[in-house]
């Protein structure tokens, strides 16, 4: 299917999945192959998917191959989420889905039917920054900024994971409560690569939001 520039070409108006709109929506809709169907259909298959992004419901018709990352960037034009490697190796594409951070490049959009997705735009905008965004500015937690949306989404989720008691590779005691020490923050952020090397300032920004010093003690 051709890629519409205007996301509205993609919008489905009927719950039954009947398409309206421009030429882009002339593509075939998906034929699930369950009920004893024969060979899979040749050529690109499209499907309808609905999820909420930053609190707004979105209905899309997508080639099944579309990753969540490409759906956000190319179809919803939420370009805050970045594509670095497209293979799960850099963390630039990190978004928060139902409260958990994931790599949006290694997830198909159609896997997210009904999910609640938060991107960097949903955490905060320039006139209303999230505390983690403010802390990144205060602590110089970036240089070029390319990895930053992923870093911030990851950082917000990391503090929640620590609160929820999720252990990490550097947690000495697996059964006790988890603490946001500098070592813990660094280990938990290892899935976010920063080519500019802003790592130490990112850890400081996170400690600031967590209200702790480098030893993880209440500051």
């Amino acid at each position: 299917m051709s890629e519409p520039n205007d996301v509205r070409d993609d919008v489905i108006v009927s719950r039954r999945g009947i398409l309206v709109g421009g030429a882009a929506s002339a593509a075939v809709s998906a034929i699930p192959a369950s009920a004893g169907a024969a060979a899979p259909q040749p050529g690109p298959a499209t499907m309808t998917v609905s999820f909420s992004v930053n609190g707004r419901k979105q209905d899309l018709v997508l080639d099944t191959r579309t990753t969540l990352l490409d759906a956000l960037r190319e179809h919803l034009h939420l370009t805050g989420t970045k594509k670095g490697c497209d293979h799960g190796q850099c963390g630039a594409c990190t978004v928060i889905v139902d409260g958990k951070r994931i790599n949006s490049c290694l997830s198909l959009a159609v896997q997210h039917q009904g999910d609640a997705i938060t991107t960097i735009e949903g955490l905060g905008m320039p006139d209303d920054l999230h505390p983690m965004q403010q802390a990144f500015i205060r602590h110089d937690g970036f240089q070029c900024g390319y990895c930053t949306p992923g870093q911030i989404c990851s950082a917000v989720a990391v503090l929640d994971e620590i609160k929820a008691g999720v252990p990490s590779h550097v947690s000495e005691n697996l059964t006790g409560p988890m603490r946001p020490t500098n070592m813990e923050l660094r280990e938990r952020m290892s899935g976010n690569i920063c080519r500019c090397g802003a790592y130490s300032n990112i850890a400081e920004a996170m400690a600031d939001v967590a209200g702790v010093d480098a030893a993880g003690e209440r500051a």
Binding site: N103, L106, E161, S168, G191
Partner: peptide, 22 residues
Amino acid sequence: RRDYGVLTRAIVAGASGQLRNK
């Protein structure tokens, strides 16, 4: 975490937080 710590330790030694969530 309490009874099969080797399993927790092995899992958190792999991949990244984002990948392990998925």
